[in-house]
């Protein structure tokens, strides 16, 4: 949809992405501190990534299909907060950690299960947003 907002300067975009990324990383760290047991199943990053993927599904429908949001909203929340909250490296680290412990089957289940959970979450988030928010029908 055409935007009524002027295009923001590149420096402003980088600044809000950085601020959002710092906050997102802090939130991920805070969730991780709530389960300090290193031998526990890697629920923390699985949950963080699933929640973050549902969040991006909702956000992207909201700002690209429903509302003419301020042009810094998507970089701040999408690229910054949710991008910094979710993590591919922490996911890969969990796989490595499980393999090091000799829990090969759990590692394989975690590897594939995260992909399934993430894709289901982003799809469900976008679908729920298209149903819930007023606006034109989904393209």
């Amino acid at each position: 949809m055409p935007s009524a907002h002027p295009t923001p300067r590149r420096g402003s975009v980088v600044a809000v992405v950085a601020l959002g990324g710092g906050l997102g990383a802090l939130a991920r760290y805070a969730v991780g501190l709530s389960t300090p047991d290193p031998d526990a199943l890697p629920w923390v990053i699985l949950a963080v990534n699933t929640v973050g993927c549902a969040g991006i599904g909702v956000l992207m429908v909201a700002v690209t299909e429903r509302w003419d949001a301020h042009p810094l909203v998507r970089p701040f929340l999408g690229i910054g907060v949710l991008g910094g909250f979710t993590s591919f490296s922490a996911y890969a680290f969990d796989v490595h950690h499980l393999l090091e412990q000799g829990r090969t089957i759990i590692a394989a289940l975690y590897l594939a299960g995260t992909v399934v959970a993430a894709m289901t979450a982003v799809w469900a988030g976008a679908a729920a947003a298209r149903r819930s928010f007023p606006g034109q029908a989904a393209p």
Binding site: C53, G55, I56, G78, G83, G84, S87, F88, S89
Partner: peptide, 13 residues
């Protein structure tokens, strides 16, 4: 740094 340099949400979207 590595946590935020990488992303699962943008990857899935």
């Amino acid at each position: 740094l590595c946590g935020a340099l990488t992303t699962y949400s943008t990857f899935s979207y």
